[in-house]
Lab assay of single mutants.
Amino acid sequence: NITNLCPFDEVFNATRFASVYAWNRKRISNCVADYSVLYNFAPFFAFKCYGVSPTKLNDLCFTNVYADSFVIRGNEVSQIAPGQTGNIADYNYKLPDDFTGCVIAWNSNKLDSKVGGNYNYLYRLFRKSNLKPFERDISTEIYQAGNKPCNGVAGFNCYFPLRSYGFRPTYGVGHQPYRVVVLSFELLHAPATVCGPKKST
Rank of each mutant, 00 (worst) to 15 (best):
A145P: 02
T193I: 10
D34S: 08
V11E: 04
V115M: 11
R179S: 00
V182E: 00
N87R: 14
N147C: 07
T201V: 15
N13Y: 08
R163I: 15
S36R: 13
Y178T: 09
N13S: 07
P177V: 02
T193D: 13
P43Q: 09
L162M: 07
C6F: 06
Y119H: 10
C158E: 00
K110M: 08
F47K: 09
P54F: 15
K199P: 12
R16E: 14
A89L: 02
K114F: 10
C31K: 07
S113T: 04
S200E: 13
N58Y: 08
V194M: 12
T193V: 11
A67F: 07
R25H: 06
L131P: 01
R25K: 03
V115I: 15
F185W: 09
S36D: 13
N58I: 08
V77W: 05
G152H: 10
V115W: 15
I2D: 12
D137W: 04
N13K: 09
K94M: 04
K132L: 12
A190I: 10
G86Q: 03
A22Q: 11
Y39K: 15
P169A: 06
N24M: 08
G174K: 08
E186L: 07
R136L: 07
S78H: 12
S69I: 03
F41T: 11
F167S: 00
L57W: 10
R16T: 15
S129W: 09
Y35E: 07
P191F: 09
N130C: 12
T193L: 12
W23S: 02
Y50E: 00
T85P: 07
E186H: 11
G146A: 06
P169R: 06
N109E: 02
N109P: 02
I2M: 14
P169V: 04
A33G: 08
F99G: 00
A145F: 03
G152P: 06
I80K: 01
Q84T: 13
D9C: 07
F47V: 12
T63Q: 11
V180A: 04
V32H: 11
I2K: 13
T100H: 10
C49H: 03
A67R: 04
N109F: 04
P82G: 03
N147E: 07
F99L: 05
N118F: 04
G51R: 12
P191E: 14
D90W: 08
F44M: 11
K26P: 00
V181H: 01
A192G: 13
A18I: 04
P54C: 06
V52G: 04
C6E: 06
P161C: 03
V103H: 00
Y39F: 15
V173A: 12
C195V: 12
F70M: 05
R27E: 11
E10R: 09
F156D: 03
K114P: 04
N109V: 10
Y159I: 01
C6S: 07
Y123L: 15
P82D: 01
S29R: 11
I138L: 14
F167I: 00
D68I: 04
V181E: 00
R73T: 10
Y178V: 15
A105W: 11
N87Y: 15
N107V: 04
T15F: 06
V65P: 02
V32S: 09
S29D: 10
T140Q: 06
L162D: 00
F70I: 01
V65L: 12
N87E: 06
H175F: 12
N75S: 15
P54Y: 13
S108C: 06
L111N: 11
C6D: 07
K48N: 13
E76D: 15
F17K: 02
N40Y: 08
K26D: 07
P7I: 08
R27L: 11
P133Q: 07
Y121F: 11
P133T: 06
Y143H: 10
Q176S: 04
I72G: 01
D59L: 07
L122G: 13
V153Y: 12
F185G: 05
T170D: 01
N87L: 15
A42T: 09
N4W: 08
F134G: 13
G152Q: 11
I88C: 04
I28Y: 15
T85R: 15
D97G: 10
T3C: 09
V194K: 12
V181T: 04
H175P: 00
T63R: 13
V71G: 01
I104A: 08
R73Q: 15
G83Y: 10
R25Y: 02
N58P: 14
F70Q: 00
G51P: 02
K94D: 01
L188Y: 15
F45V: 14
N157D: 04
C150D: 00
D90L: 09
Q79H: 05
S69T: 11
R16S: 14
L188H: 13
Y35C: 07
V20A: 08
T3Y: 09
A190F: 11
F17T: 04
Q176E: 01
K56A: 13
G117R: 03
I88W: 02
L188C: 14
N30I: 05
N1W: 07
V77R: 09
N4D: 13
F160A: 14
V77Y: 05
A154V: 07
T63F: 07
P149L: 11
C102D: 01
P169M: 04
S36T: 13
A145C: 04
N120I: 08
Y121P: 07
I104L: 11
G83W: 07
T3S: 13
V194A: 12
Y178L: 11
L111A: 13
Y165R: 02
D112H: 02
F134E: 07
S113L: 01
E76M: 05
N58C: 08
V20F: 02
G83S: 08
F126V: 06
E135T: 08
A14R: 09
V32N: 09
S78Q: 13
A46P: 08
Y50M: 03
F134W: 10
A33I: 15
G196A: 11
V77P: 01
N4Y: 09
T15Y: 07
R27I: 15
Y159Q: 00
D137S: 04
A46E: 14
K56G: 12
K94R: 09
D34W: 05
L162F: 06
V77I: 12
I72C: 07
L188N: 15
G155C: 04
N109G: 06
P43C: 05
C150E: 00
A33Y: 15
P43K: 10
S200N: 14
C158N: 02
D68L: 03
N13D: 07
S78G: 13
T63H: 10
Y91K: 09
V103Q: 00
R127E: 00
G116D: 11
P133L: 03
N4S: 13
A154Y: 04
G155Y: 04
Y39S: 14
K128W: 07
K128F: 07
A105N: 08
S53C: 07
V182D: 00
V65M: 14
